[in-house]
Design a protein around this nucleic acid. Structure first.
Lengths: 211, 211
DNA sequence: TATGAATCAGGGGGATTCCCCTATATCGTT
DNA sequence: AACGATATAGGGGAATCCCCCTGATTCATA
């Protein structure tokens, strides 16, 4: 059986060190490298090609979504598993869109992690039960209401992390007017009147998780 | 040198397993037991007495604050170190009030964890730099002004239910300018910049419950 | 009695939000 | 080739937000 080379990307040192020790315990698994943010990961990826990448979603400098997208642009056959604290729809859909092959929660255990890596390594996919249930519930409940586009989800995510319209425009390299346009569409689709209601809506509908 | 018996309390299986492996690597450290929430921890505490407890703050069933308070009621000399994702003031002050001897963030590394355990075991205290800076800044500025007044809490509640400033003024039969004044005070006390951040703050600090 | 805290109210002003409207480029589908 | 959806960008304007001030009450308490 081939050795599985794994890369771990997470900004929390303790968690990263811990999960690397967990992985080392499993026969056949090998830690190729680790990184504390997306930029460092992309840098190391230029010289080393792991079979599996465990990618945190929320990180400073460059987050998991950008890092995943850019990594897959360089190595389209890279197998990336998202690993996050939160099971909200926003994190999920953004990472799916970025191209991850799996999605599991940090509250999962060693067995689940092993299963996820095994499935994805064999060419399959893996999504934790929590995620699947939430997504299923959501699409079942409100499919008639207009689905949001990828860009709108992105803007929604930034709004929900407390950024103002100019800040979002700056981050996405687009005009303030465009962001306003996306906001207007989001408001119409969610039937809210202001930012406060939008945040509450996002939490109620599992687009945003706060702990 | 005496063996240090450690208990790890955290609801995230992967993190808990990982940190236990990290601790096992350190000579002289011994994992006495672990628990996935406060209740299970208190149960195990009845038969086993660790020297050091690493306690997560946010957990299901019974959180770290209650667990810490109850544990110290049973064993007043127990040495508990809070271990959390967030450096919010509420988390900090609640855990301090509950009686923890140390407070560190999950984004810290192995060296910091070792230092924290070492200090607290020797009878001292340990607080991470991030925490100290935040607290120092705050107490330096105005100390106890962080408590919100009744009226401010009332306004906060209305903001969090999605009302605009004029709507709140209308509802409370006061001037828009007065509501703006309350908002300004709330913003300062919570250290947020806009309504979106305020709502997230309110949820995170249990001033607002959704679902 | 004096001091401070809380609540109330307002002036002013710049930034942002939120609502209309139009318009172009692209991309995939029919 | 035509169409619809999406993302982009902008004009204009009213409302609101967010910040800086000042000042007047009331009320508890030191």
């Amino acid at each position: 059986m081939k050795r599985i080379d794994i890369a771990v990307v997470d900004d929390h040192d303790l968690f990263r060190e811990g999960i690397m020790l967990v992985l080392r315990q499993i026969p056949g698994y090998h830690i190729l490298f680790d990184a504390s943010d997306g930029e460092l990961f992309l840098e190391k990826l230029r010289t080393q090609k792991p079979d599996i990448v465990l990618m945190d979603v929320n990180m400073p400098r460059m987050d998991g979504v950008s890092a995943t997208a850019q990594a897959l642009a360089l190595c389209p056959d890279l197998k990336i598993i998202a690993l996050t604290m939160f099971s909200d729809h926003l994190h999920y859909s953004q990472m799916i869109q970025a191209g991850v092959k799996g999605f599991m929660l940090k509250k999962g255990n060693k067995q689940e992690l092993q299963q996820a890596i095994s499935e994805v390594f064999k060419g399959g996919v893996y999504f934790s039960q929590d995620i699947l249930q939430k997504v299923a519930l959501r699409t079942f409940r409100k499919d008639d209401e207009q689905r949001m586009t990828a860009r709108e989800l992105e803007v929604l995510g930034l709004v929900c992390s407390g950024l103002s319209t100019p800040e979002i425009a700056d981050k996405l390299f687009i005009s303030v007017k465009t962001v306003e346009g996306h906001r207007t569409n989001i408001f119409q689709k969610t039937e809210v009147r202001n930012t406060a209601e939008l945040i509450i809506w996002a939490i109620r509908n599992d687009y945003l998780t706060i702990e």
